[in-house]
Design a protein around this nucleic acid. Structure first.
Length: 754
DNA sequence: GTACGGGCTATTTTT
DNA sequence: TAGCCCGTAC
């Protein structure tokens, strides 16, 4: 099936057909990037490259899944055996092949960020570090950062007060991790890189693949870059695809330099720019281009489309976050009628999760279905983590983080003091906590009371039984999970509590055991044999639940929006300090990244884009700082955007003013310069109220006057209800449903508010 | 061993 | 505002 190549544009075709060697594909937003990668892989297969000698890496499971699916569709079964996966999954796979080379057991477990945090807290406690700045979170991000740069605990050196603490904590953290036969996300990459440096394995790895393709290359960190280079070292067939303008994860270690310097690092690089956009209108692209153009250090690109200009962007300033949310909802209702949009056409973006609340409330009261992406994750729920921790201890008794979590959950009389004594002894004898527990249960320990000893024994016996019955003598994972919940009386205790919250927790646990059984069934169907508990745990650590596909209106952070597209997009909270965030002050690199974030947000929109902000915003319970609109708004060319002609502080509707008679005209003590509101005059005409307005009426004003469902009276038809809008300003027309005559389109001037 | 309340602190989070 | 940690009281 080669016919597809004809459907590509020249740049895309060039990228797909390029013979080999380093290939840099600069793929602008919406330029058909995934299409190009999949076509290129199909092309490689067509040329006779063995599928299992092709490696394609992505960042998300979703992207990997999509890629695999599309390749299969394109090539039939010919891609079987190809390596498609996330960086982390790919590294895990390689590490399991050569685990012993990096002093790991083959059954190593992966510590997710929660586990990492617990472990760091533990280490801080044990080392007696009590410093206001040495929070687990800060420590972790320092350690993570070091790992992303390729600095192991042996290499890391402190150079100031804070990093000196890190230098003390890091080695202990790493030691504990290794003792638990665990790796964190950073280790998956770093240890793979170490593998690459191994005299024996390194050579084999470099020869393992003929072609390496990397998606979202702008998000790679140093270590990922080095790994990828090594894997492609023999033939140099390294194809990287990315967009430096969409690099928004530097705080996670991503280094834009990887893409900016790629050509320098690989002098024979062939570069292809994909600039034709298949997603958005030209107006949206113009806005995006203008915003990103202000970043200095970037690969020049200019998106264009063959689509027409489409609608103007609309900018609206609301009084506070609640009326901002109301505006968003009203526009949705309006578009639902006028353009027959459905909730899933809409996406609302914000800079931080904390901003979702007001939007949720507004959507809720408008009875619009919505889903929030991100936020509290299923796998972060305490009860879910508890059950998983049981499974992990069963799979790997050396996992102390999980052991500490479950040893007294639900309470079984093994309190902190008992546990601490066991830990102390374990450290003294350089044994794992589990082994020490076993020893104590058997031979005793002067420091522990007989009662405590007995409880420890009971716990060990319970766990051993579970392990023997369900893991050693096969048995199923689902059955194991059920047995854990039953024998620990976990569910029983929750049920006894009887609260609504406990009920919810039980339901979450049922959902988890259900998903375990589903997973088990899927693997059996696909591979003919049941998965091991290690397979399952790896899957859980590496694969976030795919709740990404929300129903109804989608709410999410801009970060979460990358790679997605929606017909109608709202970018909210466009205030200096919120978006862009000024948490890092005016730092140039940070501001450049905020700008890229804005670029990502804008380029998600296919047809319509609404930009909103609020004059005052309550965040974290504090009243907001003085309002300044986002600096990014000023970069959007005038021809792209409909701005309000004024931004009255109280935003009284001009109809209200007309009715109340003209009051003093728009006094302004907001400290924010804006134009005077044009005078409005009320005139009686044709039985309705007509408002003459000098100049255009902004969208803003129209919206604040007539709402959907608003009751209005017309001289001829009597009372009715507003069902929709067309036109704007003095040409505004309403679709009004009159019980007497049905729906009628009425010029707004000729109705009166009821 | 647990339950409660005061005080503190708050981005973004693919894996 | 809300969630988390820690200290205190039972």
């Amino acid at each position: 099936m080669t016919s597809g190549v004809d459907s590509l544009n020249p740049a895309q075709r060039e990228a797909v057909l390029h013979p080999g060697g380093p290939l840099l594909i600069l793929a602008g937003a919406g330029s058909g990037k995934t299409r190009v990668i999949t076509f290129r892989i199909a092309e490689l297969l067509r040329r006779g490259v063995w599928p299992d000698r092709i490696l394609a890496v992505t960042f998300t499971n979703k992207a990997a899944g999509e890629m695999r699916e599309r390749i299969e569709k394109l090539t039939g079964g010919r891609a079987r055996g190809m390596w498609v996966g996330t960086f982390h999954a790919t590294c895990a796979r390689l590490l399991r092949m050569y685990a012993e080379k990096v002093r790991l057991g083959r059954d190593f477990v992966i510590f997710d960020d929660n586990d990492q945090r617990t472990l760091v807290s533990r280490v801080l406690k044990d080392l007696g570090v009590a410093d206001r700045f040495a929070t687990p979170r800060a420590m972790l991000s320092a350690i993570d950062g070091a790992k992303n740069r390729g600095e192991g605990p042996d290499v890391f050196v402190g150079h100031d007060y804070f990093s000196d603490i890190v230098a003390r904590v890091y080695p202990v953290y790493q030691e504990r991790l290794e003792k638990a036969n665990g790796v964190d996300f950073g280790d998956l990459l770093l240890k793979t890189l170490k593998l690459c440096g191994d005299p024996d394995v390194g050579k084999r790895l470099a020869e393992r693949f003929d072609h390496v393709l990397v998606d979202e290359f702008q998000d790679t960190n140093r270590v990922q870059y080095d790994v990828v280079n090594h894997l492609a070292a023999r033939l140099g067939n390294l194809c990287v695809v990315g967009d430096d303008d969409q690099s928004i994860y530097s705080w996670r270690g991503a280094d834009v330099r990887n893409i900016l310097d790629f050509e320098r690092d690989h002098p024979t690089t062939h570069t292809v720019k994909l600039e034709q956009n298949y997603r958005s209108t030209q107006t949206i692209l113009d806005a995006a281009n203008a915003v990103i153009a202000r970043n200095l250090e970037r690969k020049q690109k200019r998106l264009f489309t063959e689509k027409g200009p489409g609608e103007l962007l609309l900018y609206h300033t609301a009084e506070d976050e609640r009326s901002e949310a109301q505006f968003v909802v009203r526009v949705m209702q309006k578009l639902a009628i006028e353009e027959e949009r459905v909730p899933s056409d809409f996406a609302v973006f914000y800079r931080t999760h904390a901003q979702s609340r007001a939007l949720e409330e507004a959507l809720l009261s408008a009875e619009l279905p919505y889903s929030v992406i991100g936020g509290i994750r299923f796998y972060d729920r305490a009860e879910v983590k508890d059950l998983l921790a049981y499974l992990r201890v069963l799979a790997n008794p050396a996992d102390e983080v999980s052991l500490e979590r479950v040893i007294n959950k639900p309470t079984r009389g093994i309190g902190e003091s008992t546990y601490e004594r066991v830990v102390a002894r374990a450290r003294a004898s350089d044994e794992t906590v589990w082994k020490t527990m076993e020893a104590i249960a058997q031979s005793g320990d002067g420091e522990l009371t007989p009662a405590a000893k007995k409880k420890l024994s009971a716990f060990i016996t319970m766990m051993d039984d579970l392990r023997n019955e369900f893991i050693v003598h096969d048995g199923s994972l689902g059955a194991l999970a059920d047995a854990v919940l039953e024998r620990t009386q976990y569910v029983e205790r929750l049920a006894a509590d009887g609260s609504h919250e406990s009920q919810e927790r039980i339901e979450n646990l049922l959902e988890l055991t259900g998903s375990i059984k589903d997973y088990e069934g899927d693997v059996i169907a696909k591979e003919g044999m049941p998965p091991s508990i290690h397979d399952y745990l790896e899957q859980v650590s590496l694969v976030a639940p795919s709740d990404t596909e929300g129903k109804g209106v989608t709410l999410m952070t801009v970060h979460a929006a990358k790679g997605l597209e929606y017909p109608v997009v709202f970018v909210t909270g466009l205030e200096d300090g919120v978006f862009p965030s000024l948490r890092n002050g005016e730092d140039e690199d940070a501001m450049a990244e905020e700008r890229r974030l804005a670029y990502v947000a804008i380029t998600r929109a296919e047809e319509r884009l609404f930009l909103t902000n609020a004059r005052a915003r309550r965040l974290f319970g504090q009243d907001a700082r003085p309002f300044r609109e986002s600096r990014f708004l000023a970069d959007i060319p005038d021809h792209c955007i409909a701005r309000p002609i004024n931004q009255p502080r109280q935003r009284p509707s001009w109809m209200d003013r007309a009715r109340d008679g003209a009051r003093d005209g728009g006094g302004d003590d907001s400290g924010y310069a804006h134009r005077q509101e044009p005078p409005a005059r009320k005139i009686e005409r044709d039985g309705g109220i007509s408002v003459e307005y000098d100049g255009d009426v902004s969208y803003d004003d129209v919206e604040s006057t007539f709402r959907l469902g608003q009751r209005v009276r017309h001289a001829k038809f009597g009372e009715g209800e507003v069902r929709g809008f067309t036109g704007a300003g003095s040409d505004l027309k309403l679709t009004v449903y009159f019980p007497s005559v049905g729906p009628k389109t009425i010029i707004a001037r000729f109705v009166e508010l009821v």
